[in-house]
């Protein structure tokens, strides 16, 4: 399946991702700058912050329990579309997902 990461400067990178991985894991596996994921997906560091593209917000669903508390720790502005990318699990219906990356993660 495909995911597109759009960096803060507009650079788009489309990658092949594995179903079952998180959007954070797919970014790390594909060397995407702009996602750090320092705590490995435990919702402890807020360095995998992303903005889900408006067209995909419904499919990615709401923030998980505890996610908004940790998003308060994000380095860049938190918007209604903000998610921790470690909390978005890739399912079939997310094939083609587009996420935007913030200016900074730390």
């Amino acid at each position: 399946m495909k995911i597109t990461y759009i960096a803060a400067d507009g650079t788009e990178t489309e990658v092949n991702a594995r179903e079952g991985d998180s959007v954070m894991q797919a970014a790390i596996a594909n060397d995407i700058d702009g996602i750090i994921g320092e705590c490995g997906g435990s919702m402890m560091c807020a360095t995998c912050h992303c903005y889900v593209d408006d067209a995909w917000v419904e499919k990615t669903g709401p923030q998980h329990d505890g996610e908004s508390d940790m998003l308060d720790c994000a380095a860049s502005e938190v918007k209604p579309t903000s998610r921790l990318s470690c909390q978005i699990k890739l399912t079939e219906e997310l094939d083609g997902l587009v996420v935007h990356l913030p200016e900074a993660q730390i």
Partner: peptide, 20 residues
């Protein structure tokens, strides 16, 4: 610089933000 100085996982250093 993907270092692990602050660890990883549930015990990822709680003082990370303060230190930085």
């Amino acid at each position: 610089n993907p270092h692990q100085a602050f660890g990883s996982g549930p015990h990822h250093c709680a003082g990370t933000h303060v230190a930085r």
